[in-house]
Amino acid sequence: MERRHSRPPLPTLRPDASPDPLRRALLVGFGATYVLSLVPFAWAQAVPDAAMAPFMALSAVLVGRPSLDPAQAKRLYDALAANDPGFPAAAKQLLDTVEQRKIDPMQLQQTLNDENSPLKDLPRQVVTAWFLGIVGSGKNARCVAFETALNAQVVADILKPPTYAYGAYGSWTRNPAEGPDHG
């Protein structure tokens, strides 16, 4: 599954392609060049809803993934927005901040903390939604994804999410480095 380990190819810009309203929305969402330098692949991404474009771009930066499933994105976005009506605007604001100040994702949390930014909870919320499939916290937490959460996906070559059968009896005795046990 080399897509996880190698840098994605640079996007091929296709000036001849017919203008696509969603593509245009995505460009709007992205603002300018810094985020594109982090997630060039996002150019090629479909966005289910133009209003989601900033969320998609921000997500791509925060989770560091070459491609994000649009249907999953819609579910997470809807849940995050339902959880906090200010979420879409905050996502756009955080994206702009990252873009304008060229903040490395590994420095982002520290930066927001140091500045006591009102956006400081946002990166965790977004990444928790993508990686754990959980939106909201405490009593209001709910599960939006399980086996499609990214933390299940990024180890799917070796592990199955709990409650999913690993494989035939005893398949777990093998060294996983020798190759996948399950299909």
């Binding site: 996880r4 982090l38 930066v61 925060l62 989770v63 560091g64 993934r65 490395d104 994702p105 590994m106 982002l108 949390q109 520290q110 903390n113 990166p123 965790r124 990444v127 928790t128 990686f131 754990l132 990214l150 933390n151 299940a152 990024v154 180890v155 070796i158 592990l159």
Partner: peptide, 27 residues
Amino acid sequence: VDGSTKSLIAAGVFGPELEKRLRHSAA
């Protein structure tokens, strides 16, 4: 996997590093 994900998110590990460190911890 779940435990490591939570710790890494709590520590503010974002971007491509998250996946890399998650795989390392899980392994």
